[in-house]
Each structure stands twice: as structure tokens, then as C-alpha cells.
Write a protein that binds this DNA or RNA. Sequence first.
DNA 1: AGTGAAATTGAAAATCACATTCAATTTCAA
DNA 2: TTGAAATTGAATGTGATTTTCAATTTCACT
Lengths: 146, 146
Amino acid sequence: MSQEVEQRSLSQYLEEHNLKHTKQREAILAAFLEATGHITSEEIHSRVRVDHPNIGYTTVYRTMKLLCDAGLATERHFDGGVTRYEIEHEHHDHLVCLRCGKIIEFECAMIEKTQLEIADRYRFRVLRHRHELYGHCDACVRELAE
Amino acid sequence: MSQEVEQRSLSQYLEEHNLKHTKQREAILAAFLEATGHITSEEIHSRVRVDHPNIGYTTVYRTMKLLCDAGLATERHFDGGVTRYEIEHEHHDHLVCLRCGKIIEFECAMIEKTQLEIADRYRFRVLRHRHELYGHCDACVRELAE
DNA sequence: AGTGAAATTGAAAATCACATTCAATTTCAA
DNA sequence: TTGAAATTGAATGTGATTTTCAATTTCACT
Ligand SMILES: [Mn+2]
Ligand SMILES: [Mn+2]
Ligand SMILES: [Zn+2]
Ligand SMILES: [Zn+2]
């Protein structure tokens, strides 16, 4: 596998913060990295349970928070009330399919710039933002057309 | 007061849907309209309680949902896990102050258009969207500078 | 006005995702 | 090897909202 960089990154974070290196943390990081983007705690839990049947939800929640602190994961809150995690990478926003759950990432310098100009008008200092488009993805649009 | 239009609008909705006109619904609509924008269920509840001490949370929740269905109110979900309601009006997005809670509305045809072009590239059909900028408002920026 | 079926209300209990508690277990520096 | 400190996971708590259900209210029709 190619998770060596991330595993080392976790180890480093643990050492620097006087935290301990455990089987659980290693397993949860592995399960998280194996999945591709935007996964829930529940999904991580069921994946990690395959090889480690005793790991509880609590540990998954705690570890994902730790991975976020360590800069390996990012929390996302799309409509629906469930936290999702993605591998931390460059800023971007999302298209979310309301039918199949597919999530597409996009980035647009024009929009990023324009929104800051708008904020400036109100002398508002933007710290973060969320821009999400909800609807139907290509595949779902076709299926809905029968 | 100038809530006649809305009261009549509610009455019409109730009649058309075989629902009943009650003191509670009238009082909750009044309390909601008296407040200016982006109010929580709890705030509505405490306001309506001044004149109607027996109205429960449950009825506020149910009635606000009804007002949304009737096209008089809109539900908003900003970061923080509490639903807020605003008087239904033209589409717009928000600047949310993380310090004092102030909420500023904005609209930008350029962004609206650009985001649809992005969706088009993915053949994604946008049904709705949310675009929220979180940070510090003018007043808070000044206070934070001591 | 009176009736009664259907809608509404509100207190209490349930839900749902996540956080906290705490006793038992594990890690790791010395 | 040892033990202090960190971690774990089951159980329990939390906070916003929803559901349940018996009692009350509305309103169309006498
Ligand atoms: Mn993403
Ligand atoms: Mn608004
Ligand atoms: Zn889809
Ligand atoms: Zn502010």
C-alpha cells in the first residue's frame, strides 16, 4: 500500500503531542485512506471492523478528530446532519447529488475572488466559507428520465 | 400592525389544506413577523410566550414548518446546529459573524451564473445551493483590535 | 346553539449523531 | 520490568428536533 507517508505523518503528530501509537489509530487511518473521499464515521467504523471487530464508534469519532488536528483529514458538513471526512487537500467546494449521494469537487478562482470583494463591501473579514450546490448528477438525471 | 397580508395568506393556506385556524398559529406567525430575520425556534417560543404562556415548543416547531410550507417562512441552517427561520423573500446568500451572530444578506448575479456554468460542465442539475461566508463583521473586527 | 368527526395541542418520551464518563487495558519512557 | 499517563469502549449524557398519544379545540352540519 502507499499509506506510508500518512502513517509517518500520524506517528510524528503523536510523538510531538505526547500521544500514544495504538493499533486502533493505525487501523482507523488505514480504513480512512483506503476509502475515496467524503466518508462518514459509520462507514469508517464498519470498514475498520472487518479486521478489528472490537473497535467502537467512540474511538472512530475520537480518532477522526485527531486526524483532523493532525492535518490528515477534513470534516465536512453537507445537508443531512451527518459529518463526513475527506483526505485533507487544497481548498475546494462541492456539488452534491441528492439522489445517489455522489459528491463532485470544484474550485473557481473567480467565485473565490468575487465573494471576498462582496465581503469587503461590508468590511466583513472572511475566515472560512462553504459553497455547495445540491441537485442531480448526470447519471441520476438520465435515470430519472426513465 | 401590518401583518394583515400574511395573516390572510396563512388563513388561505389553512383553508386550502383542510387545516384549522388556531390561536397558536396566529400568535406564532405574529411573533415570527415581528422579529427581523434569521430567528430560532427557541427565540420565537420565548417571544410568543409573553402573550401566550401555554404554547409549547412542539407547536412552535410544527407551526414554523407549516409556515414554510405555506411559503411565508424559509428554513436556514447555518453552522452551529440550530435551525433559523427568515421571512421568505428573493434568493440570497449570507455572511455570518462568528463572534456576535450578525447575519448579512448578499446576492451576486455573477456568482449565481458562474456556479451554474460549473455545474453544466459536470452535467449536474442544480436544484438549490448554499453559499455562506463565515468570519467577523465590521463591528467585531474593531472590537477585536481592542 | 348543539353535535361530533377530524384536527390540534403539549407533555413526555423517542430519536439521532455525537460527546462525556469511567473503570479496565495498553503504551512507553525510565 | 515497572508504573504513570494515555487510551479504549460500553454505558450514559446531550441538545435539537420529532413522535406519540390522551385531552382539547375547531368547524361543518344539523
Ligand atoms: Mn471534497
Ligand atoms: Mn437571509
Ligand atoms: Zn446522482
Ligand atoms: Zn460581529
